[in-house]
Amino acid sequence: MASNAAHRAYPSFTLYGAAKAAVIHFAKGFSNDLLGRKIRANVISPGTTNTPVFDRFVPAEQLEAVKKYWADVMPIGRIGQPSDIGKTAVFLASDDSSFMLGAELLVDGGLSYLSK
């Protein structure tokens, strides 16, 4: 798992973004290194997703406002759901993605590449 933060310079997320960019590079390198063993490595880079992490970093009285802010920022008009990421993981684990290796799938509601 990486993050769209590997592609966008969010304030105060420099180290996080750099670490996630490294994860993307690891997938490329591991795919090359493990090619002979027929092991593929791919990466999912989610955007803001509605998980319990919000409860850890956002005060309860601000929670809905923060979620609304992110939904408004997203080109798709909503934040992601865990099932959005899970379905992508199932795809990557299936034979349907057998021709993919070292790839990154941005599952971020269009935030990395589209403007709203």
Rank of each mutant, 00 (worst) to 15 (best):
L111F: 14
L111M: 12
I44M: 07
A5E: 08
W70V: 06
G86Y: 04
G110I: 01
V58L: 04
K20N: 00
M100P: 02
P82M: 13
V23C: 10
V107F: 01
N4S: 04
S94Q: 03
A41E: 00
N50D: 15
V90E: 10
V53N: 14
Q62R: 15
R40M: 10
L34M: 12
E104G: 05
I76P: 00
G77H: 08
A103P: 00
K38Q: 15
A18L: 08
K87N: 15
P52N: 11
N42P: 09
A21H: 03
S45P: 02
A89W: 02
M1E: 05
A21L: 08
I85M: 06
V23M: 09
D96W: 14
P46R: 07
G47D: 03
R56G: 13
A65R: 14
S94T: 06
E104K: 06
L34N: 05
S45L: 11
F26W: 13
A103Y: 07
W70Q: 14
P75M: 07
S12C: 05
D108W: 09
R56H: 06
A60S: 14
G110N: 01
T48N: 12
A71P: 05
V58I: 13
I24C: 04
F26H: 06
S112L: 02
R37W: 08
A18E: 09
A6Y: 05
H7C: 02
L105W: 11
R37T: 01
K68C: 08
I76G: 05
R40C: 09
V73M: 01
I44A: 04
V90N: 06
A18Y: 02
Y16N: 04
D33L: 15
I76C: 02
D55E: 15
T51L: 10
K87T: 12
H25E: 09
K38G: 10
L92A: 10
A9M: 09
S98Q: 12
L92N: 01
D84A: 08
S97C: 02
V107Y: 01
N4G: 07
N50V: 07
D96T: 02
A60T: 14
L63N: 11
M74C: 14
P52A: 09
L35G: 14
A2R: 02
Q81P: 00
H25Y: 13
I44S: 07
H25S: 12
R8G: 00
K67N: 04
A21I: 07
P82I: 11
I79G: 08
L106A: 05
P82G: 14
D55V: 08
R78S: 13
L105Y: 11
W70E: 13
Y10I: 11
D96G: 07
S115F: 09
G80C: 02
G102N: 09
I76S: 10
I39T: 05
S115L: 11
Y113H: 12
K20H: 01
A60N: 11
A21R: 04
G80N: 10
A89M: 15
M74P: 00
I24Y: 02
K116H: 14
G77V: 05
